[in-house]
Design a protein around this nucleic acid. Sequence first.
DNA 1: CGATTGATTGAGCTTTGTCAAAAGCGGTGG
DNA 2: CCACCGCTTTTGACAAAGCTCAATCAATCG
Lengths: 230, 230
Amino acid sequence: MACSNCDFSEIQDVILGVEDVSLVSKILKRRQQVPKGEGLFRAGQPFHAAYAVKSGTFMSYRLLEDGEEQVLAFHLPGELIGIDAIKEKQYSYSARALEPGSICELYFNDLAKLGESYVDAQDSLIRVMGGEISQAQRQSLLAARQAADERIAAFLLNLADRFNKRDFCSIHLRLAMSRQQIASYLGIAVETVSRCLKRFQSIGLLDVSGKQIEFLDRPGLENIARTSSD
Amino acid sequence: MACSNCDFSEIQDVILGVEDVSLVSKILKRRQQVPKGEGLFRAGQPFHAAYAVKSGTFMSYRLLEDGEEQVLAFHLPGELIGIDAIKEKQYSYSARALEPGSICELYFNDLAKLGESYVDAQDSLIRVMGGEISQAQRQSLLAARQAADERIAAFLLNLADRFNKRDFCSIHLRLAMSRQQIASYLGIAVETVSRCLKRFQSIGLLDVSGKQIEFLDRPGLENIARTSSD
DNA sequence: CGATTGATTGAGCTTTGTCAAAAGCGGTGG
DNA sequence: CCACCGCTTTTGACAAAGCTCAATCAATCG
């Protein structure tokens, strides 16, 4: 009865902390399909659950006053969305699917109902959140670097690493997001993204074909990204 | 026996969750003086504690290959440093004091020893960490915006707000960090920081005198920072 | 009171954003 | 199957922002 598809997910730690399987259903709503473009939650809504991505790519974003969507993060399979809203008790940003995908809902509000297993689940959750903080900080590190080249190289490598962690192919990448969304995320102009990818291709670092990316010279890319990576 | 100086701190939530005061000493090492420049921990060391800033300003940073220090964050009184290392079990960056200050050490590794109170302490900790994630994300949002003006305005307002939350004066600010450190943090050149502050002064937004900053036109500043604030 | 370090200022040059237009791509309906 | 439409991506030209280098000024510390 346990969510077997959570095996590869970061939140497996949390789930595994719960021995009584019948309790699992109280904190976990299993795999749900999410069509392309559908929202998970919106900024300002009261926090009711965090989401574990099972498949597909999601993004979190904020609506600026001028109506522009600013991309805050991309979320890949195995990652968690919205857990930070647990503090303010409401979501501070919105999230939606970039392509058809599926998610599990996690009711961390009701964690206390788990009794015995509660403590273990919390322990795990704390660790997961520690990882989230590290990730967010790494992100802000990346964003603080000014050179567009560095940002894009680091962005691509970061995506590849995250996919790789979940056993996806490490030299081939399918971007689920538009150039516009990448640009917004990295804080640069769409045209710069386009030109930069072209340049990377022309010097033999990548093979770019629309949303398909192939890594031809990983060390070369890492060299460009080095100032903002670990 | 409780750390009375934690009253104003974010971690008061954690401490207050523990009713048995005698247990507090097991997870908390009370106020310690830290001289200017002294390090709290270094990247790569095993995680043994998080630090709550009681007074003074701290910064976390990473050493790049070329020997340059990249500033990751500034930590003001009442804030927590290093809690994200709980996941990887080692610190991913270093931290040190920018001026004489004091800190409490928090041994979250031994949280389990608290027994009964454990659950409450964890609940609180989870919320604190949620806040950390939000803060880090807000930071990366700020950094992703390209305009130097926006970054600096947002940076100053953010500092002021954080001080303000702890009952410091809201129109006057004493920067504990150097221009170089601000530049590194925001990902811009030192010269740009300097010129930008001068410009803000010349149009009547600020009064700048070395490390002393006075806000003359807060709405004006907020207007400049608006694209990256909430 | 030098000397060292940090902050400011200036000049030139590179990068990147902006605007505008062309090209590609995908879907739709004839 | 093709022509058309809307949208995304690419490309080009230009202007503006910010970086670099270099010099000056200020401040801090023996």
